[in-house]
């Protein structure tokens, strides 16, 4: 492993890695018949986790710049809805994909512009846009699901790109890894990544040093919107339908995953590897607990406890190393 990679996962990254290994080991041993390690189970995680995962990467980068986006849980179903409408209107699936991406980007861009222009906390701004878009969606779709499977036959290009398996590996996890690598390069190697950390760590210093703070934030919101559109299409294609509840509660699950991955709500801290591991930890907990026959509705209680424990641990380690 080269030096920068170690640095980008730093001490917080190490404890996230340890936690991930711990969670995997725990469930490997304690799930009935070691079901957690069963290839069908692993492949199910690899197929389902990337829906949230792709968006979580963007939310993590936004949090490093010390901003929130709660509106993702509305942007995702709106993008899925528009994708479904385009298919119904007879658009070629791949074309519908490329039209839906900028729709998500535009919604993210709008968030960014409002946050930057008003200077108000993004928590409130994106809470408002979440409610606004949700209202628009529920009104427009009347909350009725729409079957779209017939528009992309089993071997069509879009269906393959979003749902096939490469050997034993579901393509969804490969997409997640692809975005992790690309965004990791941006965050840790590109000068734009340095601006993201600078803005999150000390906005005044960044501005004084000539970093365009508004640009950094708007680009990140636009990125999150684009990732939402991608996740929406990936999910709708897998499900073969649009549902108005797609992406529900992603806004908080994403933050939970990012925080478990070692990012700080105070900005300036976090890494792409940590964000990915944080997501995998949360998703493994969910999966493993269900396999251990914890009632489905009780799983969230454990995840809540896990998030608190991680935050305490991170704060403790942070203070000790300062």
């Amino acid at each position: 492993m080269n030096k920068p990679l170690i640095r980008s996962t730093s001490y917080r990254g190490i404890n996230t890695t340890v936690a991930f290994v711990g969670v995997v080991l725990f469930f490997s041993v304690f799930t009935p018949n070691h079901l957690f390690l069963d290839s069908r189970n692993l492949s199910s995680i690899a197929r389902l986790a990337p829906d949230l995962g792709v968006v979580t990467l963007g939310i993590g980068m936004l949090l490093i710049a010390r901003e929130f986006d709660l509106s993702i849980s509305s942007i995702i179903p709106i993008c899925a809805f528009i994708f479904a409408l385009l298919l119904e209107a007879g658009m070629y699936p791949l074309a519908a994909f490329f039209v839906t991406l900028p729709v998500g980007a535009a919604m993210g861009f709008l968030n960014g512009v409002i946050v930057v222009k008003t200077g108000l906390p993004s928590f409130i701004i994106t809470l408002s846009t979440m409610m606004f878009w949700r209202g628009v969606l529920f009104g427009a779709s009347r909350m009725m699901p729409r079957a779209i499977r017939r528009y992309f036959p089993a071997n069509s290009l879009l269906n393959n790109a979003m749902t096939m398996s490469v050997g034993p590996i579901p393509i969804q996890i490969l997409w997640l890894l692809f975005f992790t690598v690309i965004l990791g390069l941006l965050l840790h190697k590109h000068k734009f990544g340095n601006w993201i950390y600078a803005v999150g760590s000390n906005q005044d210093a960044a501005r004084a040093m000539g970093v365009n703070v508004a640009l950094v934030k708007i680009v990140l919101y636009t990125l999150v919107g684009t990732l939402c559109a991608f996740a929406a299409i990936m999910q709708a294609t897998r499900l073969g339908s649009f549902s108005a509840t797609q992406g529900a509660r992603y806004e908080l699950q994403a933050i939970a995953a990012v925080v478990v991955g070692g990012a700080s709500l105070r900005g300036g801290v976090g890494s792409i590897g940590g964000i990915l591991l944080g997501l995998l930890i949360v998703k493994s907990l969910e999966n493993g607990l269900i396999l251990m026959r914890v009632p489905v509705f009780g799983v969230e209680a454990f995840i809540g406890i896990a998030v608190i424990l991680f935050v305490i641990l991170n704060e403790y380690l942070n203070r000790r190393t300062e």
Partner: peptide
């Protein structure tokens, strides 16, 4: 002047 969460090198060249 400085971003405390960044390394020295990244602070020197910030922006």
């Amino acid at each position: 002047a400085l971003a405390p969460d960044l390394t020295i090198a990244r602070n020197v060249f910030m922006g």
